[in-house]
């Protein structure tokens, strides 16, 4: 009897101690598992997000490459269609013929009446708006040499209107964008000062 009582008391004490320890352990375990699970969950989410971004990035990169290739293809197509050779071929296809370059002679130039304006739309000076003409070689010769045999300033010369001026202007350059007929003002504006004529 005495022995049993001792044991019972002992066991009761043991159970009480063990019971309190297990609850704490369980609680800690659950926390740890929750943390680990959350970590795994977070990592997985990050991983799949990365994968998703990667896929999108890859598609966008491909799109950029395709667009660049398309841009180049369009540039090529534009250049081919604007190429003088191609334009000439197409013009011939629709029945246009190349103008035979009529060789205008010096006689033809001289034959033109200097005072008679033949082509009003051409860059011809108005008589009232005489431009300053640079001293020519002849006038230079006057300055330089005492024997001024050849000295003959040509400042006030009237421009000759060559008979082929119109055809010269009509020559269409593939580089030159469509222009409106040249008015006097436009002609004056277009008068090149230096080689800014060339873009």
């Amino acid at each position: 009897m005495k022995r049993r009582n001792v044991t019972r008391v002992h066991r009761n004490n043991e159970v009480a101690v063990r019971s309190s320890f297990q609850w704490r352990l369980l609680f800690l375990t659950i926390i740890c598992v929750a943390i680990v699970a959350a970590g795994f969950f977070y990592a997985a989410r990050q991983h799949f997000a990365t994968m998703e971004f990667g896929l999108k990035n890859s598609k966008l990169r491909k799109q950029v490459e395709d667009l660049e290739a398309e841009r180049r293809r369009l540039i090529l197509a534009k250049e081919v269609s604007l190429s003088p050779v191609e334009m000439k071929r197409l013009a011939q296809d629709i029945g246009l013929r190349e103008l035979a370059a009529a060789p205008p002679t010096a006689a033809a130039i001289k034959a033109v009446e200097p005072q008679t304006p033949t082509l009003t739309s051409l860059p011809v000076e108005k008589p009232s708006e005489k431009k300053e003409v640079n001293p020519t070689l002849a006038s230079y010769a006057v300055e330089k040499r005492s024997d001024n045999k050849a000295a003959k300033p040509v400042e006030a010369k009237t421009l000759v209107k060559p008979i082929v001026q119109q055809s010269a202007v009509k020559i269409a350059s593939p580089d030159v964008r469509p222009r409106i007929a040249l008015t006097d003002k436009r002609v004056a504006d277009a008068t090149p000062k230096s080689n800014s004529k060339l873009r």
């Binding site: 002679t105 001289k110 860059p123 421009l159 000759v160 060559p162 277009a190 008068t191 060339l198």
Partner: peptide, 17 residues
């Protein structure tokens, strides 16, 4: 013509036939 350079030929400096 393409460069729109104004004409400068005068009656005195044309070529001699």
């Amino acid at each position: 013509a393409e460069m729109q350079v104004p004409f400068d030929l005068t009656a005195d400096n044309v070529a001699i036939d």
